[in-house]
Amino acid sequence: TYYTVKSGDTLNKIAAQYGVSVANLRSWNGISGDLIFVGQKLIVKKG
C-alpha cells in the first residue's frame, strides 16, 4: 500500500493510522529521521 503524505502528517500519525511502528515505516521507506514531505509517497505494509 502507498500513502501520500498530506500537510500536517507525521510519521507517528501515519504509523498509528495503519497500526504499524514508526521504525517499520522508516525501514520500508529508507528514512533515517522524522523528515517527510507533502506529496511524498510512503510504502505502508498493513500491521
Results as ranks from 00 to 15, higher is better:
Ile43Asp: 04
Thr1Lys: 09
Ile43Gly: 03
Val5Phe: 03
Asn29Trp: 01
Ala23Ser: 11
Val5Leu: 03
Ser27Leu: 15
Gln17Thr: 13
Asn12Ile: 13
Ile14Phe: 02
Val22Gln: 06
Ile31Ala: 03
Ala16Val: 11
Gly47Cys: 09
Gln17Lys: 11
Thr10Pro: 01
Leu25Gln: 00
Ile43Trp: 12
Asn29Val: 01
Val44Cys: 05
Ser27Gln: 13
Ser7Trp: 10
Lys45Asp: 15
Asp34Asn: 09
Leu42Phe: 04
Lys13Phe: 12
Tyr3Gly: 01
Gly47Thr: 12
Ser21Cys: 06
Trp28Asp: 04
Val20Thr: 11
Val38Ser: 09
Asn24Pro: 02
Arg26Gly: 04
Asp34Thr: 08
Thr1Glu: 13
Gln17Glu: 13
Asn29Met: 01
Leu35Met: 14
Leu25Ala: 01
Val38Trp: 06
Ala15Gln: 02
Asn24Trp: 11
Gly47Ala: 13
Lys6Asp: 05
Gly33Asn: 10
Lys13Ile: 11
Lys41Cys: 08
Ser21Gly: 06
Ser7Ala: 14
Asp34Cys: 09
Thr4Val: 14
Gly39Asp: 07
Val20Phe: 04
Ile14Ser: 00
Ile36Asn: 02
Val38Lys: 07
Gly47Asp: 15
Lys6Cys: 05
Leu25Tyr: 00
Gly47Glu: 15
Val22Cys: 06
Thr4His: 10
Gly19Tyr: 08
Leu11Gly: 00
Lys46Trp: 15
Ala23Pro: 09
Asp34Trp: 09
Phe37Pro: 05
Thr4Ser: 08
Ser27Phe: 10
Asn29Ala: 02
Gly8Val: 03
Ile43Val: 10
Ala15Pro: 00
Leu35His: 10
Val5Glu: 00
Gly30Asn: 13
Asp34Met: 09
Lys13His: 11
Gln17Phe: 14
Trp28Phe: 05
Ile43His: 07
Gly8Pro: 03
Asn24Arg: 09
Ile43Leu: 15
Gly19His: 11
Tyr3Val: 07
Gly33Phe: 07
Ala15Asn: 01
Leu35Asp: 14
Asn29Cys: 01
Ser32Cys: 08
Leu11Ile: 10
Lys46Met: 15
Ile31Asp: 03
Leu11Phe: 05
Lys46Val: 15
Gly33Gln: 09
Ser7Cys: 06
Gly30Pro: 05
Ile36Ser: 02
Ser27Tyr: 14
Gly39Gln: 04
Ser27Met: 15
Phe37Trp: 12
Val5Arg: 00
Trp28Leu: 06
Ser7Ile: 13
Gly47Ile: 15
Phe37Thr: 11
Phe37Ile: 12
Tyr2Leu: 09
Gly39Phe: 04
Gln40Leu: 08
Tyr2Phe: 11
Gly39Asn: 07
Tyr18Lys: 05
Val20Asn: 04
Gly19Lys: 11
Lys41Met: 15
Gly30Glu: 11
Leu25Arg: 00
Gly19Val: 06
Ser32Gly: 10
Val38Ala: 09
Leu42Ala: 01
Val20Gly: 03
Leu35Gly: 09
Val22Glu: 09
Ser32Phe: 11
Ile36Ala: 04
Ala23Glu: 12
Tyr18Thr: 08
Phe37Glu: 11
Val20Asp: 03
Gln17Cys: 08
Lys13Leu: 13
Lys45His: 15
Ala16Glu: 12
Gly8His: 07
Asn29Lys: 00
Gln17Tyr: 13
Ser7Glu: 15
Val20Pro: 02
Val5Met: 03
